[in-house]
Design a protein around this nucleic acid. Sequence first.
DNA 1: AGGCCTCTTTGCGCTTCGGCAAACAATTCG
DNA 2: CGAATTGTTTGCCGAAGCGCAAAGAGGCCT
Lengths: 236, 236
Amino acid sequence: MTFADQNLRRLPIFAALSDTERRDIASAASLRCLARGESAFSEGAQVDEFFLIVSGHVKLSRAGAHRDAVILQIEHPGEPLGPTGDAQGRRQTTTATVLRDCTLAVWPMASWSRFLLDMPGLAMGLLQVIERRLAVTQDRLIEMACLDVPRRIAHLILRLIDQAGRHEEDSIRVDFPITRQDIAALTGTTLHSASRILTHWERQRIIGGGRRELLVRNVPALVDLATARAAAPETS
Amino acid sequence: MTFADQNLRRLPIFAALSDTERRDIASAASLRCLARGESAFSEGAQVDEFFLIVSGHVKLSRAGAHRDAVILQIEHPGEPLGPTGDAQGRRQTTTATVLRDCTLAVWPMASWSRFLLDMPGLAMGLLQVIERRLAVTQDRLIEMACLDVPRRIAHLILRLIDQAGRHEEDSIRVDFPITRQDIAALTGTTLHSASRILTHWERQRIIGGGRRELLVRNVPALVDLATARAAAPETS
DNA sequence: AGGCCTCTTTGCGCTTCGGCAAACAATTCG
DNA sequence: CGAATTGTTTGCCGAAGCGCAAAGAGGCCT
């Protein structure tokens, strides 16, 4: 009841629903605001709520072996968080950390399960979303398998500006704070390697940005780096 | 109508359906038999059918950059193949190659879409399956990011015997033919590295098997290799 | 049986990248 | 306003594992 079902209409996961259904769903939601660094849920916790990002950006990470956490994906407004199917009794497999002050729509898992059963279109919408998410994860798996670190980072940055790029004068800004550490955790490398590579590209004016910022100045060059066969290691 | 809906009852994707619904679905299916090496579909082709593995094993691969194809997953009896949601007009993102003589149940995409709309439980069942598949892909992504090649291979083998292990006298056999090249493509390494590692483990009698065979003789040792901190590189 | 073809093994050099160590810079906090 | 915290840069070393090259080995086909 707290946020207009006007907004729900645009979301792909609600695309197949009727107005009445959307209204029912909207009226069962509550809103929750989280600040940067807070978590919506943590790896291993009971799944007892269903989340949808209204505004802000959230990273989903998991602790892997000895290295620091690996980031599985970054989610943007309109995307659901956590298991979307009937997850009664299951546990979260990831930790959801807010990158930028964030509003979430929250449903108790029990009501969500009921919606899933009562509204045939809902599961179909979710199916599309999860299938797309699977496709993205598969893309990243292939990148990890086939590409060296610089190319993986180039692909990542292109994906980031595609998902959350904001145009500025002569460049595109990733419009949420992201650290070098995050970039490393997204590409399966170390902070140090990521830093080296980004600094190098910054010298060539391909990218820019300061602490926690990332902006792309030269998209074609980046596409080139992502695709090309060899990387030029020398600075000047 | 060619295969008993008895069998459909057990499959997770049909779990939520009524008997009548299952019968309708079963009666719309046709069966297709494929020999080892044949493909159910290829990367880039129009999606115009929905597949379910009745028997046999299928590998889903995608061509990645320069290196040979990467295997995204190996699917076993009972699992669906390809996009499961309404995929009218989309294209296959993977190539499905049969590893072992195989029977597939096939539905025209048009009928499948109709089933999805008419039977609320169907999309929910698929959602569960795809969500699990996403989880597995995420696990692999993390392995790729955090583990060295030997450990990735150890994890892979454990996963294989878990999914398709057949107990023999004093060992467990992966009950479909798999090459070293496949193992490399599943773990994001090269045929050569994979061969070296497997040969080494074979000398220690941890694993065994000949051409296209893989059997595990010492599961605990393998678990150890998958988990442990350091790898012993020396042969004898 | 012979030959082809696929699959596997093995050796060696070289590059990429991770690990370690240590400054440096920007922010926040007391 | 200085100190602590957090994020970033950089250099050096060593090793994991990839690329290249080539030889075995087991099957399959005619």
